[in-house]
Amino acid sequence: MALFLQRLIDGIGNGMLYGAVALALVLIYRATGMVNFAQGEMAMFCTFITWKLADHEFGLGLPIVAGIAGGVIFGFLFGAALERVVIRPFESADHLRQMIVTLGLFLAINALAAWIFTADTQRLASPFPSGALRLGGVSVSYHQLGVIAVLLVMALALRELFGRTRLGLAIRGASMNPESSRLLGVDVSRMLMIGWGLSAAIGALAGALVAPAVFVSPGMMQTLLLYGFAAAVLGGFDSAPGALVGGVMVGVVQAMVSGYVPAVGTQLQLATAFALILMVLLVRPQGLFGRVSVERV
């Protein structure tokens, strides 16, 4: 029983991180109507910035919380700048071409990070105290608890932004019907820029939270991005709370399957993510919390 609970807790902890990546994907999807394959690499790049700000040996040695704040702010500016310089020339192109541009970004940012920073694996400290909370035979690290709390707050903040504020409404409108938005005085290009900025900032936060576990390296986000995709598909690509719930479910399924199905073990873990994506797409393509877009004709 204790082992089961431990696996459950570990699954939830990992799953929240998948959910954070999924949130970034969902955000850009809601803001721009496209899937950004470079999401993970953008987060990785920002995590290197956090590392540069916080590392005592190779960087400025700032407190880790300041480093994360710096990485998140850099992320917003980085995302906005990428939209302005790389994506905007393709603004009128179809989504397929835009997504291929993000695939190019994936490769470019990955190479750039290795060139500017290092291709070696680096350590990043957790912003939360070390140690763990023990209850019976189950232990939950303060890092896991902190990650869960931070990401819950972020998801609620995003829900408020999109559900209740004018900016959120304008961003949603601009992605849904750019022409009508322009006719109502909305600067659509600026909304896309803000959407990319927000999404990259969330990615930066997710990167900094996952880095203490996976270390900082150019490839650090690639597996996480796949789980993030699984989480986003499961939760519904247009639902922010769905992304987090989807992430937790992917994390728990992964922990249980690799724990209880010996044939899967640790080697085939990633396959569970793909199996989940396929099952969801077959059974409920809009995801658990996604809305089906209906238009009467």
Binding site: M176, L183, V294
Partner: peptide, 11 residues
Amino acid sequence: APEGRGTFTDL
């Protein structure tokens, strides 16, 4: 007010 379907269909 554009003709036809100028609404935000998912809003």
